[in-house]
Structures are given as C-alpha cells and as structure tokens.
Design a protein around this nucleic acid. Sequence first.
DNA 1: GGCCCAACAGGACATATGTCAAAGATTTGC
DNA 2: GCAAATCTTTGACATATGTCCTGTTGGGCC
Lengths: 191, 191
Amino acid sequence: MKGHPLRNQIEEIVKLTDDEFVFVLEHFQKRIFKKHQIVLHEGDYARYDYFVLNGLMRVSRWDSNGKEHILQFGMENWWITDAEAFHYQIKSTLTVDCLEDTKALSLTLENKEKLSHELPKMQNFFLKKTTNGYIALQKRILCFLSSNANDRYHNLLSIYPGLIQRVPKAMIASYLGVTRETLSRLAKIEA
Amino acid sequence: MKGHPLRNQIEEIVKLTDDEFVFVLEHFQKRIFKKHQIVLHEGDYARYDYFVLNGLMRVSRWDSNGKEHILQFGMENWWITDAEAFHYQIKSTLTVDCLEDTKALSLTLENKEKLSHELPKMQNFFLKKTTNGYIALQKRILCFLSSNANDRYHNLLSIYPGLIQRVPKAMIASYLGVTRETLSRLAKIEA
DNA sequence: GGCCCAACAGGACATATGTCAAAGATTTGC
DNA sequence: GCAAATCTTTGACATATGTCCTGTTGGGCC
C-alpha cells in the first residue's frame, strides 16, 4: 500500500494510516480501458470520476460545426471526468476517451460524498484538489487573454511535460484553441 | 439575520441554525471600499477572500506590454480574490480593485480553515462553491476554444446580466480577450 | 515488399482581429 | 454649467490565424 499513487497524492495534503487508506480504496473500483475506448459518451450520465493510474485520457467536446475541442488531458495521477455532469448528475455534454491503454480508479459521486463524510480529512483533500484545479483553470484563462498561440504552446509544454511525445499535434492544437496548420507554422518559426 | 445575503448563499447548500450563522459571521470582517480603491495590490500578500455585499469589484492582471486583462468581475454575492495568492499565502500577481463603492465581508485563510474545522458543513459549503467555480471556468475555457468574440460576448451577457450597464465596454472587451475596437464593431453588426 | 491510413508540412488565399489615429459622445469634477 | 477627462466609434491598414488543398512521410499490417 505504501507508494500507491493515489495514497501518495492524498498524503501530499493529509496523512493517512494504512487502515484508513485501505478504507479509502474500498470506495474505488479498478478499471481497464483500451486505446480509443470511449469511457463517457456525450448524452450519458457521468457516473464516475477517474483517477488515472497509467495511460492517457482526454475530455473533449464536439461543436455544432463538427469540430473537436479538447478541454483536458489526463495523464498518470490526474483526475478526469465531465465535472458538471458528474457533480450535478446530469447528462454529459462532453466525451471522455482514452488515447492509450489506460488503467484508472473510478469513484461514484455517492462514494465521494460517503468518503468525505466518513473521513473528514478526505473532504479536506477534495477541497484542496478542487481549489488547485480552479487556480490552474484561472491561469489557463489568463493565458487565453494575454498570450498568442505560440506562448500558449510553450505554457502547455511546461504544464504537461512529455505530452507532446504522446499525442498527435492536431490534439495539442485543439487544446490550445488553434488549427493544426497554425501550430505547424509556429513550430517552423521556432527552428 | 434571516435574509442575510451570505446566509442565503450558504443555505442553498447546507442548513444553519441562527446560532451557527452568528458563529459563521464572527469569522468575517466588514469592509467598505471606495470606487477605484485598490483592495489588493500586485506583489502584496492576499490576506482576504471577499464576499461582495454590494458594489462591484474586479480581478485583473497587467501584462508585460502594459495591457490589462480582466479575469473576473465580482458583483453582489460573488466571492473574489487572487485565489492562488490567497490559498498559498504568496505574493499576488493580480490586482483586485473596485469599480463602484463596495461593501464586502472579508475572510482570512486562517479563519476559513478554522471555520471549516469547527463547523464541518462549512467545509462542505466551500467545497461545493469551489466545485461550481471550477465548472464555470471550464465553460469559459470551452467558450474560448469554440467561440468567436461575438459568441463569447453573448455568453457573457447571460452569465453576468446587468454587468453591461455597470462597466465600460472596454472592460467587457478585456474580459472577453479582444480589443475595445473589435467589441465595438461586433455591436454594430448586431444592429 | 507493397499498401493504407494517419499525421504532418506547406502554399495560396480569405477572414477575423489588432493597431494606430482621429473624431464624437458621455461622464465627472469643480 | 462648463471644462476636462474618459469612453466609444470609425476608418485605413497590418498581422495572425483560418480554410482549403496538395504532397510527403512514416508506421502498421497483410
């Protein structure tokens, strides 16, 4: 149990005994997904929040013009779901799928609330994680407000080191909010 | 105490007795600011999170080219601060100021944590509010990814009804990430 | 080895948005 | 009520990015 990635993440914020971590883990289910597998379809209820053990997932939206927009990537130790659909238990407007074979731990909203209640420091953990997520999104918005595509690209490199090697550039472009052609031109200028 | 705006907001999420609300309120300080007053200077520590009672505040950043970018407006019943500086107790990279005479309740991080600890349902409240904030930021990012300035403008109208009448259009433009000239041209097309 | 298909780079042109400058319009302060 | 300051609109032009298209590359697969 020592060295479990979930435990490591929790213990960066609150300390757990071995028994407590076993108890925490009982609220999760282990999941195995194949590359290209869709984990949450648009229009379905988002029953789970996922903690990625290994592999790579993403959350995206298809707009009315048939274009795909990537909201988030989820690498090892990231949490990923359609947050709105999950927390409000409504139908998802986003799609979650796997860019690689992926192992994850799934958590239902019911279990998340149960866990928060039974072990208050877990609520503390969730609050801290959500706050950090909120701050990260604020930074991303500031990046949209103040930076051109080139600066946003370099910002991405620093947030997701190693991502560039794992996903097609067209997806990087989609995350940045530009076309793949624009991203390609930026790369040329760099050289 | 019934009908207090803060109490109303909390009770949308968790119920409080009169005594509990009095206890909650003891953790806040009442603040009065003048229009144009700077509440948090860039480079200062963010000692407070503010709950706006009336008036209008904003959070913004000055980039290296001397341009101002507005991250958030805070109208009645909104919470506002430099979230990163507040939660990590580090120097602020953002500025908080008032666009109107403003009354607010201020909360230190210490009191926020004390309150969360002494009255666990308040932690529940903070978690829910933060989660909602996170979801709202995700939507704003999706808006940047998939919408042009015109769509973002109409999105803003729906999120902050009444804001248009209260702030200069140049600030609306800054929030949307376009120049005031572009926003002005959009308005013309509408008519 | 040869064939697909996905990914990528690049050119030519279209469009949205930015920049700069100036003129009106509105608000603010005295 | 007037003068100053702020805010908004508009035009001409520059730039960044989008769109459409074509050709190349390289890996997976039979």
